[in-house]
Design a binder for these strands. Structure first.
Ligand SMILES: [Zn+2]
Ligand SMILES: [Zn+2]
Ligand SMILES: [Zn+2]
Ligand SMILES: [Zn+2]
Lengths: 151, 151
DNA sequence: ATAAACCTTGGAGTTAAATCCAAGGTCAAG
DNA sequence: CTTGACCTTGGATTTAACTCCAAGGTTTAT
């Protein structure tokens, strides 16, 4: 049996996190000591491993609660149910990636359009693109020309 | 001049959002009517366009506050400063994408390993992978065999 | 003159996943 | 018998970007 601090150290999480998981129904220690200390069994540790793994592939704690409820009543769930959760999450993740890819490509275009030099931003292509009343965000690809210093 | 509802409609945001931007120093109407109504000028509208565009490429409102403070004092900032903000944000976005790509690939492996059928999840490869004590999350690529029904 | 649609303010609630705090109980070492 | 490390609880705070609410003032149309 592990006390909360031991289990936390073992899995490199904070004790607060374990108490938080308990409060949210994800992981409750199977026993308490006489003094009221949480005592975690090997099974509890296994469950924590499950939680941490599921987090590592992108599941939210809510998702994990669902997975855990399946996990401890496997016989009454089908592969289809489990795969459904995974596929749904995969779609969410892919949607988020698509959004971020769009950000990245936009930012990249902006970056390319700016000379990045030490001169005044008065004609900065990035700011111009953000100011523009065009419907599309379209920075000129050529760098602006900063006035030559001292001809 | 636009009243808050008009400007909101024009840019397809909520009035609450405009008040929120004001509270956070992003966009304050340049005038008020006698009755205290916010009145937005064309310049204010232009500033809102800037904010919305910057959001659309992934900047947070904090980032945008910084961009706006540069925007209205361009002469005292260099292209390097602006490009720096863009490049920093681009790195953050790329880091997030990398994390999500890892999630997606993990989820994809899990999904592939599960038959997705209507039979009991007792031997589901997804659950097994999450339970596993292996350091790596590695579902078997072959689907488990569910017992044949009725031989 | 009254109803509908609009505006004002301050403040509370939402979501996610912790993280931190205070006041106090427990336990082992010296 | 006292320090220090550990544990308990309930509740507050954090971050981001809104979103909603209540109570009341304003405008406009009928
Ligand atoms: Zn430049
Ligand atoms: Zn520039
Ligand atoms: Zn199966
Ligand atoms: Zn399966």
């Amino acid at each position: 049996m592990y006390r909360i601090g031991e289990l936390a150290t073992l899995f490199d999480v904070k004790t607060d996190t374990l108490r938080f998981y308990e409060k949210h129904g994800l992981l409750t220690s199977s026993t308490r000591s006489e003094a009221g200390y949480r005592l975690y069994s090997q099974d509890d540790a296994q469950k924590l491993r499950f939680i941490i793994r599921a987090k590592a592939v992108g599941f939210s704690l809510n998702d994990i609660a669902e997975l855990l409820s399946i996990e401890l009543d496997k016989a009454n769930w089908a592969c289809a149910d489990v795969k459904g959760l995974v596929d749904t999450k995969l779609e969410q993740v892919q949607a988020k990636i698509a959004e971020l890819e769009f950000f990245a490509s936009s930012l990249n275009k902006l970056s390319q359009a700016c000379c990045g030099g030490p001169d005044s931003a008065e004609h900065c292509s990035i700011l111009e693109a953000l100011e523009s009343t065009d419907k599309e965000l379209s920075p000129k690809v050529e760098h602006h020309l900063h006035a030559e210093k001292q001809g």
